[in-house]
Design a protein around this nucleic acid. Structure first.
Length: 586
RNA sequence: GCUGAUGUGGCUCAAUGGCAGAGCAUCUCACUCGUAAUGAGAAGGUUGUGGGUUCGAUUCCCACCAUCAGCUCCA
C-alpha cells in the first residue's frame, strides 16, 4: 500500500477497492497513450471492478477495449511507481488547464475552499485523485484484468449535461479468479428471467405493447398462486381487500397531487369532454373508499388491501423484462391509523414483509428514502415522519442505508430491495408514511373524546409489483420453483401407449386432490419425455408402464434426477402434499 | 429520453450486393420402447417497418419501431 498498512489480501474490501481504483488510473493512462485527445472525467472503483468516464471524439467499441487492455498490460509490466503530491488550488487549476482536461478543472473548481488537492503520478500520467492507491502498477496482474463494457453516462449524473463514455473493468490478483468471475456471470445470465420466461412459457413481450407483458398459461398460474398466497397472509394480518376503478377523473388526480407531479407519466384520455387518467397508483381510490363512511378510533388501524392494476409511462430506455414495465399489478394496501399507532403498524408491516420474503428464501436490503425537492407538506412533518420510520426499524435491529431525497412526493419511505441473478437490486417492498393525503382528502375518524381527528396512513406493497416479483423469484430459483409455486407440479410419463389410460386415471386422481398435473401422452421414448420434463423444471415426474399398471403404482423421479422408485399413488400424494406444505402459512 | 450495439421461420443460430440455410419445435409415417434426445419425410421466411442507392438489397445508406447494455428516471 502506498500510505497505509492495510491487510494485504484481496478479500479485504479496502484493498480490493484500492486495487481497482489503481486499475482505473492504469486504464486512463492506457487510453491517453493510445488517444491523447480523449478527455478524462471520473474513474472510481465500484462494487465489482471500476469504471472511468471519458469524452472521446469517437465511440469506443469492443476492439478498442482489447487495444486498451493490451496497453494496460504493458503499463503493469513497466512497474511504474505511484507518487502522491499536493498542489494549492491555483497551481492545481493551472496544471489541469495546461493538460487541457476541462472536466478535471471543473472538479477542482467545485472542491471546497479548504480541500487538500492531491494528485497521483505514474510515469507520464498524472490524475487528480484523493487516493489511496497501490504503490506500483506492477502490483496489478496484467493477465487477470478485463474491460467488460463501454456505455454512455452523463457527466455528473445530470441528463442535461454532456454524454460521456464509461468503460467498465474488472481485475483479480489471479487469472483463475478472473475466469471464475466471468464464468459466474455467464451462469447468471442463464438465470435471466427474460430467458427463463420464454423457455418456461411464463410470459411474453411484444413490439405491439412495449412494457406491457402478456402472461401465458403457466405464468398466469404462477401469478394466481402468488395472489392466493398473498391473500392468505394478509388475511392473517387483519387486512380486508377492495378493488378501485382503473380510471378516474382529473379532479381526483389534482386533489391527490398526482396531476401536478406526474401528469407526464400518466395515460390520459377525454371522456364526454372530461379529462380522465388511468391510475398510476391506487391510493386516491383508496382514499375515496375510506372517506365513504364514518370511522371510529375502534376501527383503527384499518388495513385495506388492493391488488391494483396500474399504468405508468416509463421512459422507453428504462424498460427491462418484467422488472420495469409500464403496466403492472401492485399488491397495494393502505393502513389508516392514529399517530400513536404509527410505530406498531410499521413494525407489524415489517414482520409481514419478513414472513413473505422468508417464505421465498429471499434476503433484502432496506433503504430509508428522505424528502425530495419536489414534495408537499412541511419540513417539520417530513422530519418527524422520517424519525418514526427510522426508530421503528432501528428498534427491530434492522440495518438500513439512507437514500437522500428519494422519498415519494407525499412522504418518506422504507424501500426493500431484492437482488437479481446479476446482483442488480430492484425495489420490491416499500412502506411509505403519509400524513399528506389524509389531509388533502380530509379523512377523519371519531376519537374516544367524541371529536373528529385526522388519521395518518401508510402506503405499502410487499411483492411490489407482481410482475417484478415473478421476475425476481424466477431468477432466484433459476426457474426451478419449489413444488408449491410450480405451475405444473407433476408430469405423468406413460412408457408406452398401453399405459396412457392408466396415466389419465392417475392424473385425474391427483387433479382431484388439488395438484397441478400434466400428462405427456406423446408417442416418444421415455428418455425423451424425462429429458423434456426435466428441462421444463417440473418437480415430480411419474413414469408409468406395464409394471406400474400391474402393481397399481407410480415410479417417482424428482427433477434433480433422484429416482424414488415405485410407490402407491397414496404414498406419492402424501409425499407431494408434505412438500407443498412448505408454504409458510401456519 | 440519452449513448452504443442488435433485429434472419415458433425458438436458438448460419450465410450472402445475384435462387436465404441448419438444429430444435410443428405435421405425417414407421417404431411401442422403463428413467436426460428413435428414424424417415413434409411444411414453414416479403430477412423489424418505411424510404433511398443499385440492373438487382436480406446485405450498403437514411428514418422510424423494438430489444440489449449502461446512464437518467422510477409517485
Amino acid at each position: 500500500m502506498a500510505e497505509e498498512n492495510i491487510q494485504y489480501t484481496f478479500e479485504n474490501p479496502e484493498y480490493r477497492a484500492t486495487y481497482w481504483h489503481t486499475c482505473s488510473h492504469v486504464m486512463a493512462q492506457a487510453v491517453k497513450r493510445l488517444w491523447p485527445e480523449v478527455k478524462l472525467a471520473i474513474g472510481p472503483s465500484i462494487d465489482e471492478g471500476w469504471y472511468y468516464d471519458m469524452d472521446a471524439p469517437f465511440a469506443f467499441t469492443p476492439e478498442h477495449l482489447g487495444q486498451i487492455e493490451g496497453e494496460m498490460r504493458k503499463i503493469c509490466k513497466e512497474k511504474l511507481k505511484l507518487e502522491r503530491f499536493e498542489l494549492p488550488r491555483p497551481e492545481a487549476l493551472k496544471f489541469m488547464e495546461e493538460k487541457d482536461e476541462p472536466f478535471k478543472v471543473e472538479l477542482i473548481c467545485d472542491l471546497p475552499e479548504d480541500a487538500v488537492i492531491s494528485f497521483y503520478k505514474q510515469g507520464e500520467f498524472t490524475d487528480l485523485c484523493a487516493g489511496p492507491h497501490l504503490d506500483s502498477t506492477g502490483r496489478i496482474k496484467g493477465n487477470a484484468l478485463k474491460l467488460t463494457a463501454c456505455n454512455a453516462a452523463y457527466w455528473r449524473g445530470d441528463s442535461n449535461r454532456e454524454t460521456l463514455q464509461r468503460i467498465y473493468g474488472i481485475a483479480f490478483p489471479k487469472k483463475d479468479e478472473l475466469d471464475e468471475y466471468l464464468a459466474r456471470i455467464e451462469e447468471a445470465k442463464k438465470r435471466d428471467h427474460r430467458r427463463l420466461g420464454k423457455e418456461l412459457g411464463l410470459f411474453m413481450l411484444r413490439d405491439e405493447g412495449p412494457g406491457f407483458p402478456f402472461f401465458l398459461p403457466k405464468g398466469m398460474t404462477l401469478k394466481n398462486i402468488l395472489l392466493d398466497y398473498w391473500r392468505k397472509v394478509h388475511k392473517k394480518y387483519g387486512y380486508v381487500e377492495i378493488s378501485t376503478p382503473i380510471m378516474l377523473n382529473r379532479q381526483l388526480w389534482e386533489r391527490s397531487g398526482h396531476w401536478d407531479h406526474y401528469k407526464n407519466n400518466m395515460y390520459t384520455t377525454v371522456i364526454d369532454d372530461v379529462d380522465f387518467a388511468v391510475k398510476p397508483m391506487n391510493c386516491p381510490g383508496g382514499m375515496l373508499v375510506y372517506a365513504s363512511e364514518p370511522h371510529s378510533y375502534r376501527d383503527l388501524p384499518l388495513r385495506v388491501g388492493e391488488i391494483g392494476l396500474v399504468h405508468r409511462h416509463e421512459l422507453s430506455g428504462a424498460l427491462h423484462g418484467l422488472f420495469r414495465v409500464r403496466c403492472f399489478n401492485q399488491d397495494d394496501a393502505h393502513v389508516f391509523m392514529t399517530r400513536e399507532q404509527m410505530q406498531d403498524v410499521i413494525q407489524e408491516t415489517v414482520r409481514l414483509f419478513d414472513e413473505v420474503y422468508s417464505t421465498f428464501g429471499l434476503s433484502y436490503t432496506i433503504e430509508l428514502s428522505t424528502m425530495p425537492e419536489d414534495h408537499i407538506g412541511t419540513v417539520e412533518e417530513w422530519e418527524r415522519n422520517q424519525d418514526i420510520l427510522k426508530a421503528a426499524i432501528t428498534d427491530m435491529g434492522k440495518d438500513f442505508v439512507i437514500n437522500e431525497g428519494d422519498g415519494a412526493f407525499y412522504g418518506p419511505k422504507l424501500d426493500f430491495h431484492l437482488a437479481d441473478s446479476l446482483g442488480r437490486t430492484w425495489q420490491c417492498g416499500t412502506i411509505q408514511l403519509d400524513s399528506q393525503l389524509p389531509e388533502r382528502f380530509e379523512l377523519e375518524y371519531t376519537g374516544e373524546d367524541g371529536q373528529k381527528h385526522r388519521p395518518v396512513m401508510i402506503h405499502r406493497v410487499v411483492l411490489g409489483s407482481i410482475e417484478r416479483f415473478i421476475g425476481v423469484i424466477t431468477e432466484h430459483f433459476a426457474g426451478a420453483f419449489p413444488a408449491w409455486l410450480s405451475p405444473v407440479q407433476v408430469k405423468l410419463l406413460p412408457v408406452t401407449d398401453r399405459a396412457a389410460e392408466y396415466a389419465g386415471q392417475v392424473s385425474a386422481k391427483l387433479d382431484g386432490l388439488g395438484f397441478r398435473v400434466e400428462v405427456d401422452s406423446r408417442n416418444e421414448k421415455i428418455g425423451k419425455k424425462i429429458r423434456e420434463a426435466t428441462l421444463e423444471k417440473i418437480p415430480f415426474m411419474l413414469v408409468v408402464g406395464d409394471r406400474d399398471m400391474e402393481n397399481g403404482t407410480v415410479s417417482v423421479r424428482r427433477r434433480s434426477g433422484e429416482d424414488l422408485g415405485a410407490m402407491s399413488l397414496e404414498d406419492f400424494s402424501t409425499l407431494l402434499g408434505d412438500e407443498v406444505k412448505t408454504m409458510a402459512i401456519k
